[in-house]
Simulated scan of single mutants.
Amino acid sequence: MVSNEYLKQQQLLFGKRIATLRKEAGFKIQYVFGQKVLGATNVPSFISKIERGANINFQTIIKLANALEMPLFNLFDYNGTSPIIINPTYNYDLEERMKNEADILGQNIRLIRKAQNMTQLDTEIESGIFNSNISNYELGNRFSKLDTITILAYGLKVEAYELFSLQ
Rank of each mutant, 00 (worst) to 15 (best):
Q35T: 06
L75K: 06
T148W: 03
I134D: 04
I109M: 10
I50P: 00
R52M: 08
K36I: 08
L105G: 10
D77S: 03
Y161W: 05
N100P: 09
L13T: 11
L105F: 12
N108V: 06
N131M: 13
Q116V: 03
F58P: 00
T150M: 09
V32A: 15
N79G: 13
L21P: 00
Q59P: 06
K145G: 15
L152K: 06
L21W: 02
L12A: 11
A102E: 10
E96V: 14
M70F: 02
N87F: 07
N108L: 07
S48Q: 13
L121M: 12
R17M: 03
L75T: 04
A65L: 02
N57P: 08
G26S: 05
E95K: 15
G155A: 05
N87Y: 05
I61H: 01
N136E: 14
F14Y: 12
R22P: 00
Y161D: 06
N108I: 07
M118K: 10
E162H: 09
N74L: 04
E126V: 10
E69G: 01
I85M: 01
N42P: 00
N74F: 03
A102M: 08
Y6I: 14
Q35H: 10
A40R: 14
R142S: 08
N108M: 00
R110L: 11
G155S: 01
F46K: 07
K49P: 07
T150H: 13
Y6G: 12
N79S: 15
R17E: 08
L163V: 02
M98Q: 11
Q10W: 14
K28T: 15
D122G: 04
E101K: 10
R110Q: 10
Y92I: 05
K99N: 10
S127E: 08
V158D: 04
M1K: 13
N42H: 08
E96M: 13
M1C: 11
A54Q: 05
A54C: 02
N117K: 15
E5I: 15
G26C: 04
E162P: 01
I61S: 02
E138D: 05
Q9K: 15
L68T: 01
I149R: 04
M70Q: 09
T41W: 09
D103G: 13
I18V: 14
E24N: 13
L13P: 06
L94C: 04
P71V: 02
K28A: 15
I62M: 04
T89Y: 13
K49M: 07
K114A: 12
N91I: 00
L146F: 02
Q116R: 11
I129V: 08
I151F: 04
E95A: 15
F76M: 06
K99Y: 09
Q11Y: 12
T123N: 10
L152N: 06
I151L: 03
I47P: 01
A115N: 15
L121I: 12
N133D: 14
T20C: 12
T41R: 12
I47A: 06
F130T: 15
T20W: 14
N108A: 08
Q9S: 15
I61W: 00
L7Y: 05
A19K: 12
L38S: 10
A153F: 01
I56P: 00
L94I: 11
I18M: 08
T41Q: 13
